[in-house]
Nucleic acid binder design. Structure first.
Lengths: 151, 151
DNA sequence: CAAATATAGGAATATTTATACAAACAATAT
DNA sequence: ATATTGTTTGTATAAATATTCCTATATTTG
């Protein structure tokens, strides 16, 4: 239904622009904008959007969108490294290689990036890379790039 | 008071290592660890720590630290089991084996730990172990150790 | 030291949020 | 068209969480 999609959009917009402290507040704003819904639906919407109430430095709460690390709102970029590509999903990274090369490249990653990479598992043209905890995507990207580009 | 500081520490630790869905769950774990407190105090603690309940992709909620705290969490230890090693990253466990042994050991894990382990994927010297939901790291470590040490 | 002030935390409760259930409707298959 | 299945949502309520009010214990200050 069109209305629902609109509503989810508007919820995201409101929540990013003003400090909303609870669902009733947000509910009223939505009603002012012409939406007709109940708290139950709003609770479900927030769950779908993964919007959560987090405490700020003063003793208040504010609804916020998930941090960009987890968010799927904008498409995760595929990075090209030589004739290979790298993309993340959750805490995992996937490198696509030319057919037959995955095992060799995975071995190189294991050998040269063991501080940041917990392990790799390779198929024919796909390597699953499991980063160690504490390394973020940029760090892993940088490290993988430098290993792969030397090949 | 010392006790409070300890408690906040332990809360962070528990929350990073296992999927906590509500305060009562966490309350019980804390009581098992010898802390004495009520839900009211726990609510205040979580507010201080800015730990919040966020929805995951399945319809569940999980308490999590703010993302900036992930990098501060203490480095995850690698455990040695025989000539193999075990380390966690997020919800996944990775076992490193001698070259060529991963497939065989993975088969043993599949066969003997199927209640705790959802599945394994093996490369040449790396096994990706996917634990079932509801098992924490200590449990998985114990189970994997006992399976692998018998080999 | 004693008074003043701040901090921690429990019990009870208010507030807030999630969900079970049922109804309405749409989409799809028979 | 009729049955089947899935989706969305409201109502009512359960469940979860935050806070008020109060006491006890620390900490600071004169």
């Amino acid at each position: 239904m069109r209305n629902k999609i609109d509503r989810l959009h508007v919820i995201k917009e409101i929540v990013t622009q003003q400090a909303i402290g609870n669902q009733d507040e947000l509910l009223h704003l939505l009603k002012e904008q012409g939406f007709s819904l109940t708290q139950a639906t709003l609770s479900r919407d927030l769950k779908r959007l993964k919007i959560t109430k987090i405490p700020n430095d003063m003793g208040e709460y504010r609804y916020t969108l998930p941090s960009s690390f987890y968010t799927q709102s904008k498409r995760n970029e595929t990075k090209t490294i030589g004739s290979n590509s790298l993309e993340f999903s959750g805490q995992l990274a996937v490198v696509k290689t030319r057919s037959g090369y995955a095992g060799g490249i995975a071995a190189e990653i294991d050998e040269h990036a063991s501080n940041a990479i917990l392990g790799t598992i390779a198929g024919d043209d796909t390597i699953l890379v499991i980063p160690r905890e504490g390394f973020n995507r940029d760090e892993i990207t940088y490290i993988l790039s430098s290993v792969i580009e030397k090949l």
